[in-house]
Design a protein around this nucleic acid. Structure first.
Lengths: 170, 170
DNA sequence: TACCTTAAGTTCGATCATCAGACCAAATGG
DNA sequence: CCATTTGGTCTGATGATCGAACTTAAGGTA
């Protein structure tokens, strides 16, 4: 592992987790995977990330078993079960950011499909359970700023859609 | 904010959260705060972090309202309510790292004081609630590696102790 | 009070990571 | 069969991190 990106000699699971998902851009790439982004160009258009870094991150995520790369030609990157298991941590961090930066006006809302909205703890307010990401639908909230971006991915994300389902682009 | 550490033009609460806690070392500093570390030298001894970076991170965390700096002389850094609100996200990430890297042998165990152990979702297995960090006791688990470090902080952390309580050092 | 040690940083040159942009080969579409 | 798109790699410039030396102030001791 390259120097400056690991936390050697830290006997801690948080340090181990951060060695995998703690580098710059990695969490945002995984967020896009949950939102249905699967192709190199779409990540790049949505994230304004250098191609070299995107390439390195995707390769590392595949090597660490969080993503699969399928298709001999233009590949498709999809979350594995290990990657999907990050959802509770990602949702908790997202909620913390929401309450801190735009109190009372979430940028995105999450709903247990056919049931109720998700509370700050990830529990469905109707049935009281923690739904799996496959059963969650995301849609823009009152704090969203549609003027910020207009790439194809951002536009597609303005429609409500299920997590992990491929985005309708092109 | 310094260039290369922000995610401008991302209309996303996760990006906002990562601008605050996503930089290298920041999450580990906050972890130490939960474990009771409060002084500059102790962070430095426990983390093997450059003094310059530690100084910059602490300053940023105080500016962002996650830590307070008290004491005119040798200061003490403590979590604010905003910082403490990060606990669910941190615990979720920690559990993910634990299950991924040392399956079946957690490096650290967490217990709802006077009640039961915490499950992977942060819920007390006895009473079913999500206890606040003040009511949680941490202790080494079967996956811990006591040969890795022997600084004063690591040694003190081998005793069970409540989160947020100052560590007994010196 | 004077002296010594420790704590809490700052400063410095070297190294590592990231950036924007040019370049390139394979896959796809017509 | 050719043009375009996709999925990268390569390069020089810039920003971040590193370890080590240096500085200043606080606390302890005689």
């Amino acid at each position: 592992m390259p120097l400056g990106t690991d936390y050697a000699r830290q006997d801690c699971s948080l340090a181990r987790a951060l060695e995998i998902v703690g580098e710059r851009w990695t969490m945002l790439i995984l967020r896009d995977c949950f939102l249905g982004v699967r192709r190199f160009t779409d990540f790049q258009a949505h994230l304004d990330i250098s191609r070299a870094v995107l390439s390195a991150r995707l390769e590392a995520l595949v090597a660490d078993g969080l993503l699969t790369r399928t298709g001999s030609g233009h590949p498709s990157y999809e979350l594995t079960e290990t990657g999907i298991a990050l959802w509770p941590a990602m949702f908790a961090l997202l909620q913390w950011g929401d309450r801190l930066t735009t109190p009372g006006a979430p940028r995105r809302l999450y709903r247990h499909v056919g049931c109720g909205d998700l509370g700050p703890d990830g529990r469905c307010e109707a049935c009281g359970r923690h739904p799996a990401p496959r059963d969650v639908e995301a849609r823009p909230g009152p704090g969203a700023d549609p003027t910020l971006r207009d790439d194809a991915v951002s536009v597609a994300l303005r429609q409500p859609h299920r997590l992990l389902e491929p985005l309708a682009l092109r």
